[in-house]
Computed example of a mutant assay.
Amino acid sequence: MTLVPMRFKNYEWRYNPEEISFECEKNVRELDSPKGTAYVQNLGRKNRLIKGKGQLCGEDCHEQFEKLWEVFAEGTVGVLALPFIKPVYAVFEKLTVIGEPVPDMLTYSFVFRETMESERAEIQTRCIAGENECLWDISYRTRLEVETLLNLNPWIKQADEQLQEGRVIRLC
């Protein structure tokens, strides 16, 4: 299986971070009753924290970091795509340079916070085919199975068929 590169908004990591962790918590309250019995109330899932650490390598590692910093500084919600995980809407919460600078390598860490409100508000039912795209490209971009896209768009005969730019593709 080929790993997809990590992406956030318009920034794509040249090399995936060496460490990625997900912190998932539930919002749970313990309530005491007058009879001395405790009850647990599940108030739902909290927004996930996605943390990681990696290196930017090459002669242009500082330029790579500057581009990453620009994306961080925007401070707005964007789509975060990670290897093996369905993309999520997130905010870039923290960016840290770690250790002593060395030639051609910069070590960094990051924290993203999922924003579930945006995910609910922006359920995508259709997308527009870009220049030279096929269903495989749409599948990669939307994280939907190619077979699902073929069933939803019966006018497309093969997944590798080049689509007309601007064509509307059903996603659900």
Rank of each mutant, 00 (worst) to 15 (best):
E23A: 14
A121C: 06
A81Y: 00
V146G: 05
K46M: 14
L149S: 08
Q124L: 14
E131Y: 07
K94H: 07
Q41Y: 10
L150C: 05
V91G: 01
L163M: 02
Q158G: 09
F22G: 12
W136R: 05
V40H: 08
T142L: 09
N153Y: 06
I169N: 12
N27K: 11
E30H: 08
R167E: 12
N153T: 05
P103S: 08
G99D: 07
P83E: 10
G58K: 01
G44E: 05
R113Q: 14
E19I: 12
A121S: 08
L163R: 01
F112Y: 06
E131D: 06
M116G: 13
R120K: 12
N27A: 12
K26T: 13
I123L: 04
L144K: 12
S33R: 10
E161W: 02
K26R: 14
D60K: 03
A73D: 03
R45Q: 13
G99V: 04
F72I: 05
E30C: 11
T142S: 14
E117L: 09
E74Q: 03
F92A: 02
C61W: 00
V168P: 07
E145I: 04
Y11W: 00
L135N: 04
T115F: 13
Y11K: 00
E74P: 01
I128D: 02
F112W: 10
R48Q: 15
E19Q: 14
L171H: 05
R45S: 15
F72N: 05
T115A: 11
L95N: 08
I123E: 07
T107H: 07
E12V: 03
F92T: 01
R141V: 06
T142E: 15
N16V: 06
C134H: 03
R14N: 09
D60H: 07
S118E: 11
F8I: 03
S118G: 13
E74K: 04
G44L: 08
Q124N: 10
